[in-house]
Protein backbone atom coordinates (compact mmCIF):
# COMPACT_ATOMS: atom_id res chain seq x y z
CA UNK A 1 0.00 0.00 0.00
CA UNK A 2 1.07 3.58 -0.55
CA UNK A 3 2.36 5.57 2.38
CA UNK A 4 0.11 8.10 3.99
CA UNK A 5 2.16 10.94 2.47
CA UNK A 6 1.51 9.61 -1.01
CA UNK A 7 -2.18 9.21 -0.26
CA UNK A 8 -2.28 12.73 1.08
CA UNK A 9 -0.70 14.22 -2.01
CA UNK A 10 -3.09 12.26 -4.22
CA UNK A 11 -6.06 13.53 -2.22
CA UNK A 12 -4.74 17.06 -2.51
CA UNK A 13 -4.59 16.56 -6.26
CA UNK A 14 -8.17 15.34 -6.36
CA UNK A 15 -9.59 17.85 -3.89
CA UNK A 16 -7.66 21.14 -4.04
CA UNK A 17 -9.83 22.68 -1.33
CA UNK A 18 -9.32 19.97 1.29
CA UNK A 19 -7.30 20.87 4.37
CA UNK A 20 -5.31 17.78 5.36
CA UNK A 21 -2.83 17.22 8.11
CA UNK A 22 -0.82 14.15 8.99
CA UNK A 23 -0.60 13.25 12.67
CA UNK A 24 2.61 11.34 13.29
CA UNK A 25 2.57 8.40 15.68
CA UNK A 26 5.57 7.87 17.89
CA UNK A 27 4.62 4.40 19.11
CA UNK A 28 6.01 1.13 17.82
CA UNK A 29 2.84 0.58 15.80
CA UNK A 30 3.83 3.19 13.18
CA UNK A 31 0.26 4.05 12.33
CA UNK A 32 0.12 7.74 11.38
CA UNK A 33 -3.27 9.25 10.76
CA UNK A 34 -4.83 11.88 8.54
CA UNK A 35 -6.96 14.75 9.79
CA UNK A 36 -9.54 15.89 7.25
CA UNK A 37 -11.57 19.07 7.53
CA UNK A 38 -15.29 18.58 7.97
CA UNK A 39 -16.30 20.28 4.75
CA UNK A 40 -14.46 17.86 2.49
CA UNK A 41 -14.46 14.83 4.78
CA UNK A 42 -17.35 13.05 3.10
CA UNK A 43 -15.96 13.52 -0.40
CA UNK A 44 -12.48 12.46 0.68
CA UNK A 45 -13.85 9.38 2.42
CA UNK A 46 -15.85 8.45 -0.67
CA UNK A 47 -12.75 8.88 -2.78
CA UNK A 48 -10.79 6.62 -0.42
CA UNK A 49 -13.50 3.99 -0.71
CA UNK A 50 -13.79 4.13 -4.50
CA UNK A 51 -10.20 4.78 -5.58
CA UNK A 52 -9.06 1.68 -7.49
CA UNK A 53 -5.62 1.63 -5.87
CA UNK A 54 -6.97 1.91 -2.32
CA UNK A 55 -10.50 0.45 -2.33
CA UNK A 56 -10.93 0.94 1.41
CA UNK A 57 -14.27 -0.82 1.43
CA UNK A 58 -14.18 -1.90 5.06
CA UNK A 59 -14.55 0.51 7.94
CA UNK A 60 -13.25 -1.56 10.79
CA UNK A 61 -13.40 0.68 13.80
CA UNK A 62 -14.80 4.06 14.71
CA UNK A 63 -13.68 5.51 18.04
CA UNK A 64 -14.40 8.77 19.72
CA UNK A 65 -11.65 10.62 21.54
CA UNK A 66 -12.10 13.55 23.86
CA UNK A 67 -9.30 16.09 23.95
CA UNK A 68 -9.63 18.61 26.71
CA UNK A 69 -8.28 22.12 26.21
CA UNK A 70 -4.56 21.99 26.83
CA UNK A 71 -1.54 24.21 26.88
CA UNK A 72 1.55 23.07 25.08
CA UNK A 73 4.89 24.61 25.90
CA UNK A 74 7.62 24.60 23.29
CA UNK A 75 11.16 25.67 24.05
CA UNK A 76 13.12 27.27 21.26
CA UNK A 77 16.66 28.57 21.36
CA UNK A 78 16.87 32.11 20.14
CA UNK A 79 19.95 34.31 19.72
CA UNK A 80 19.49 37.55 21.55
CA UNK A 81 21.52 40.50 22.63
CA UNK A 82 21.84 40.37 26.39
CA UNK A 83 23.81 43.25 27.88
CA UNK A 84 25.39 43.93 24.52
CA UNK A 85 26.60 40.35 24.11
CA UNK A 86 24.92 37.92 21.74
CA UNK A 87 23.77 34.90 23.69
CA UNK A 88 21.60 31.87 23.13
CA UNK A 89 18.52 32.18 25.23
CA UNK A 90 15.75 29.64 25.64
CA UNK A 91 12.42 31.11 24.87
CA UNK A 92 9.32 29.41 26.13
CA UNK A 93 6.24 29.84 24.02
CA UNK A 94 2.92 28.70 25.32
CA UNK A 95 0.19 27.85 22.89
CA UNK A 96 -3.27 27.16 24.15
CA UNK A 97 -5.03 24.42 22.22
CA UNK A 98 -8.80 24.50 22.41
CA UNK A 99 -10.55 21.27 23.34
CA UNK A 100 -12.28 19.24 20.68
CA UNK A 101 -13.86 15.87 20.10
CA UNK A 102 -12.53 13.53 17.53
CA UNK A 103 -13.91 10.57 15.59
CA UNK A 104 -11.21 8.17 14.42
CA UNK A 105 -11.97 5.81 11.52
CA UNK A 106 -9.78 2.79 10.88
CA UNK A 107 -10.24 1.88 7.23
CA UNK A 108 -9.10 -1.34 5.63
CA UNK A 109 -9.63 -2.95 2.28
CA UNK A 110 -11.22 -6.36 2.13
CA UNK A 111 -10.79 -6.70 -1.61
CA UNK A 112 -7.12 -5.69 -1.72
CA UNK A 113 -6.36 -6.87 1.84
CA UNK A 114 -4.39 -3.88 3.01
CA UNK A 115 -4.72 -1.14 5.57
CA UNK A 116 -5.15 0.63 7.81
CA UNK A 117 -5.67 4.18 6.69
CA UNK A 118 -6.66 6.17 9.74
CA UNK A 119 -8.97 9.10 9.24
CA UNK A 120 -9.65 11.65 11.96
CA UNK A 121 -12.56 14.05 11.94
CA UNK A 122 -12.56 16.84 14.50
CA UNK A 123 -15.30 18.98 15.91
CA UNK A 124 -14.71 22.69 16.35
CA UNK A 125 -15.24 22.61 20.09
CA UNK A 126 -16.69 20.44 22.83
CA UNK A 127 -19.92 22.32 23.40
CA UNK A 128 -22.11 23.74 20.64
CA UNK A 129 -20.17 23.08 17.49
CA UNK A 130 -19.90 19.36 18.00
CA UNK A 131 -20.80 18.18 14.51
CA UNK A 132 -18.83 16.10 12.07
CA UNK A 133 -20.21 14.57 8.88
CA UNK A 134 -21.43 11.01 9.26
CA UNK A 135 -19.74 8.38 7.14
CA UNK A 136 -22.53 5.84 7.67
CA UNK A 137 -23.90 6.40 4.15
CA UNK A 138 -20.54 5.19 2.87
CA UNK A 139 -19.91 2.35 5.30
CA UNK A 140 -22.96 0.86 6.95
CA UNK A 141 -20.69 -0.66 9.59
CA UNK A 142 -20.19 2.78 11.10
CA UNK A 143 -23.88 2.99 12.01
CA UNK A 144 -23.81 1.56 15.54
CA UNK A 145 -20.35 2.86 16.27
CA UNK A 146 -21.28 6.43 15.40
CA UNK A 147 -24.39 6.07 17.50
CA UNK A 148 -22.21 4.90 20.35
CA UNK A 149 -19.91 7.90 19.98
CA UNK A 150 -22.93 10.21 19.90
CA UNK A 151 -24.13 8.54 23.08
CA UNK A 152 -20.90 8.43 25.03
CA UNK A 153 -19.00 11.46 23.69
CA UNK A 154 -21.69 13.73 22.34
CA UNK A 155 -20.46 14.16 18.78
CA UNK A 156 -23.36 14.86 16.43
CA UNK A 157 -22.99 13.07 13.12
CA UNK A 158 -24.66 15.04 10.34
CA UNK A 159 -26.34 12.73 7.88
CA UNK A 160 -26.60 9.72 10.18
CA UNK A 161 -29.87 7.90 9.43
CA UNK A 162 -30.77 7.02 13.02
CA UNK A 163 -28.85 9.06 15.56
CA UNK A 164 -30.17 7.97 18.96
CA UNK A 165 -28.60 6.89 22.20
CA UNK A 166 -27.53 3.26 22.01
CA UNK A 167 -26.03 2.13 25.32
CA UNK A 168 -27.37 4.66 27.81
CA UNK A 169 -31.09 5.05 28.25
CA UNK A 170 -33.10 7.69 26.44
CA UNK A 171 -33.57 10.07 29.36
CA UNK A 172 -29.88 10.26 30.14
CA UNK A 173 -28.40 13.72 29.73
CA UNK A 174 -24.61 13.65 29.96
CA UNK A 175 -21.93 11.89 27.90
CA UNK A 176 -20.07 9.51 30.21
CA UNK A 177 -16.92 8.94 28.18
CA UNK A 178 -15.96 12.61 28.25
CA UNK A 179 -12.89 13.28 30.32
CA UNK A 180 -14.64 15.86 32.49
CA UNK A 181 -17.70 13.74 33.17
CA UNK A 182 -18.76 13.89 36.79
CA UNK A 183 -20.44 10.83 38.21
CA UNK A 184 -23.87 11.46 39.66
CA UNK A 185 -23.84 11.46 43.44
CA UNK A 186 -25.82 8.28 43.99
CA UNK A 187 -24.13 6.60 46.91
CA UNK A 188 -24.55 2.93 47.68
CA UNK A 189 -23.35 1.25 50.83
CA UNK A 190 -19.89 -0.12 50.39
CA UNK A 191 -18.26 -2.34 53.00
CA UNK A 192 -14.65 -1.35 52.27
CA UNK A 193 -14.74 2.32 51.35
CA UNK A 194 -11.44 3.97 50.60
CA UNK A 195 -10.07 6.90 48.59
CA UNK A 196 -12.79 8.77 46.76
CA UNK A 197 -15.40 6.20 47.73
CA UNK A 198 -14.58 6.84 51.39
CA UNK A 199 -14.95 10.58 50.87
CA UNK A 200 -18.30 10.02 49.25
CA UNK A 201 -19.39 7.70 52.04
CA UNK A 202 -18.37 10.19 54.69
CA UNK A 203 -20.24 12.96 52.93
CA UNK A 204 -23.37 10.87 52.92
CA UNK A 205 -23.20 9.49 56.43
CA UNK A 206 -21.44 12.16 58.39
CA UNK A 207 -18.43 10.92 60.31
CA UNK A 208 -19.79 7.47 61.08
CA UNK A 209 -17.74 5.90 58.34
CA UNK A 210 -14.17 5.72 59.46
CA UNK A 211 -11.15 4.19 57.87
Amino acid sequence: METLDQIKSRIEGAFPGAALQIIPNESAAQQPSLVVDNASAFAVARWLRDDPALRLDYCSNVSGVDWLPAETTTKTKVKKLVNGVEQEVEEVTKTARPGYLEAVYHLYSMSLKHGPVILRLRTLDRAEQNQVPSLTPLWRGAEFQEREIYDLFGIRFDGHPDLRRILMWDGFVDHPMRKDYVEPDDYDYEPTPHDEVLEKAQKHQGTEVSA
Binding site: E26, S27, A28, S60, N61, H106, P116
Partner: peptide, 18 residues
Protein backbone atom coordinates in the same frame (compact mmCIF):
# COMPACT_ATOMS: atom_id res chain seq x y z
CA UNK B 1 3.03 8.43 24.11
CA UNK B 2 1.46 7.27 20.90
CA UNK B 3 -1.40 5.16 19.66
CA UNK B 4 -1.95 1.71 18.25
CA UNK B 5 -4.76 -0.36 16.82
CA UNK B 6 -4.34 -4.10 17.10
CA UNK B 7 -6.85 -6.69 15.93
CA UNK B 8 -7.14 -10.44 15.88
CA UNK B 9 -9.55 -12.96 14.47
CA UNK B 10 -11.50 -13.95 17.53
CA UNK B 11 -14.15 -16.67 17.14
CA UNK B 12 -16.88 -14.07 16.62
CA UNK B 13 -15.03 -11.83 14.20
CA UNK B 14 -12.49 -9.07 14.29
CA UNK B 15 -11.77 -8.03 17.85
CA UNK B 16 -9.70 -4.88 17.97
CA UNK B 17 -8.32 -2.65 20.67
CA UNK B 18 -7.49 0.98 19.95
Amino acid sequence: AGEAYGRIECPKGELGFY
